[in-house]
């Protein structure tokens, strides 16, 4: 089965193509510009693989949490590929993909992990996973202090762009979470392999974890008789 995976949700623009036992990867760190970079990057990876879009059996994309715009760049592209080729697309959360990335580390293999990413506004995106990558908590957007009270006791490692902050804060709450890695984007091959294991059901949908910034208006109109 040939897999094409896309991640534009965080601090990198990454693609991976799995074709048999080969993996072709492109990844560039970029805070913005994914919308411009993605298609040329995919064209390069496909050319190297010798495959065309019609040879892809499944598309995989990170669905967030991450930057709202970045998440939609990847999801819109992959839904477009799926619509055009008639092949399924599956969504993988960035938290799941980062947990899979953590398991690639020798010291992370076979151990539960907390994934924690900087979500700005003094909050983190976080989720705990067991040694096999199954979730131990729901995905959360949460302040670090509040997070510390919700981490399952058997987790001793933290991974992601907020790992150092969470580790530093864990001492004061009587926990000792060790930093496994501070990667801010998932490994694209790990992402593709996760997508391979999923059963495609519906089209990927973004996972924002935050509501849009908008407040209903009130009292704007003048008084009436």
């Amino acid at each position: 089965m040939n897999i094409l995976a896309v991640d534009t949700a965080l601090s990198a623009c990454s693609v991976a193509i799995l074709a048999g036992d080969r993996a072709i990867v492109r990844s560039v760190a970029m805070p913005r510009g994914h919308a411009e970079a993605l298609m040329p990057m995919l064209a390069g990876a496909l050319a190297e693989s010798g495959l065309g879009y019609g040879d892809i059996d499944r598309f995989v994309v990170t669905t967030g949490p991450g930057t709202f715009t970045g998440v939609r760049v990847g999801v819109a592209a992959v839904r477009g590929f799926a619509l055009t080729t008639g092949r399924p697309a599956v969504g993988v959360t960035t938290l799941e993909a980062l947990a899979a990335t953590a398991r690639l580390r020798p010291e992370g293999a076979g151990r539960p992990v907390l994934v924690a990413m900087d979500a700005r506004r003094d909050e983190v995106y976080a989720q705990g996973f067991n040694a096999d990558g199954a979730p131990l908590t729901e995905p959360m957007v949460i302040a670090i202090d509040a997070l510390l009270g919700r981490i399952p006791g058997d987790i001793g490692l933290v991974f992601g762009s907020a790992a150092e902050a969470v580790s530093a804060a864990s001492g004061s709450s009587g926990r000792d979470l060790k930093v496994l890695g501070t990667e801010s984007a998932p490994d694209p091959v790990a992402l593709a392999r996760l997508g391979l294991d999923r059963t495609p059901d519906s089209m990927p949908k973004p996972l924002y974890l935050r509501a849009p910034d908008a407040k209903p208006q009130a009292g704007a109109a003048l008084a009436r008789k």
């Binding site: 919308a35 298609m39 995919l42 939609r72 477009g80 590929f81």
Partner: peptide
């Protein structure tokens, strides 16, 4: 960006 990326994806594929 949603429309643009969807259009590009269809054009590419």
């Amino acid at each position: 960006l949603v429309g643009l990326m969807t259009g590009k994806a269809i054009a590419a594929a």
